[in-house]
């Protein structure tokens, strides 16, 4: 949303253009709806009540969904959108504000820099990269949470990254199907 806003302002400086023949509006609207719904569901999963013993194995679904749309979205998510999503997650989870925002923005940036290569990888290779992505994400979130004295032991971070990587193929299957059904390419 942030980058669309910036584009919107940048257009003021350009000479007026004829309107495009095919209206891209409904497709983009559909994409935004699917994006928001998927992010919302991931947010609900991230706060689903689990006992602390099981909570360690919770996949970082919101991070995975953001990475998926950065890699596969028709209009790519920018760093700004990821940052806003992260901040919402922080506010909802009642952690130190800014932790998930920083981590998701960073992961989105790495995704933006490498999506051309990552798209060509096989699912196993992608899952390995997701392990690294979520690992970086967890590292930064944990660092910020540590400001309030809630730093988790290192094995929690590794477990979370591994579970998230294991969930990646499933998530790709589901979201590909959604993309196919709603023709979001």
């Amino acid at each position: 949303m942030c980058c669309w806003f910036l584009i919107g302002t940048a257009r003021w400086n350009l000479p007026p253009k004829p309107p495009p023949a095919i209206e891209p509006c409904p497709a983009r609207f559909l994409f935004i709806v699917v994006l928001v719904v998927s992010l919302m569901l991931a947010l609900l999963v991230s706060i689903y009540p689990l006992s602390p013993a099981h909570s360690v194995y919770r996949p970082e679904l919101l991070c995975l969904v953001v990475v998926y749309w950065v890699l596969n979205g028709p209009h790519q998510l920018g760093v700004g959108v990821a940052w806003c999503v992260g901040l919402i997650q922080d506010v909802v989870e009642d952690g130190v504000w800014g932790g998930h925002a920083l981590a998701l923005a960073l992961v989105a940036y790495i995704g933006l820099m490498s999506y051309r290569r990552l798209r060509t990888y096989s699912m196993t290779q992608q899952a390995f990269w997701i392990f690294v992505f979520v690992g970086i994400h967890q590292l930064f979130v944990n660092w910020i949470q540590g400001l309030n004295g809630y730093a988790a032991p290192a094995r929690y971070l590794v477990i979370s990254a591994a579970v998230s990587a294991a969930c990646w193929p499933l998530l790709v299957l589901v979201l590909r199907e959604v993309q196919r059904r709603y023709r979001i390419f």
Partner: peptide, 15 residues
């Protein structure tokens, strides 16, 4: 990259 730098600093400030 520039956006990331600004937003990261903002997130750190908020934290």
């Amino acid at each position: 990259g520039a956006r990331l730098a600004v937003l990261a600093l903002l997130a750190l400030a908020i934290a």
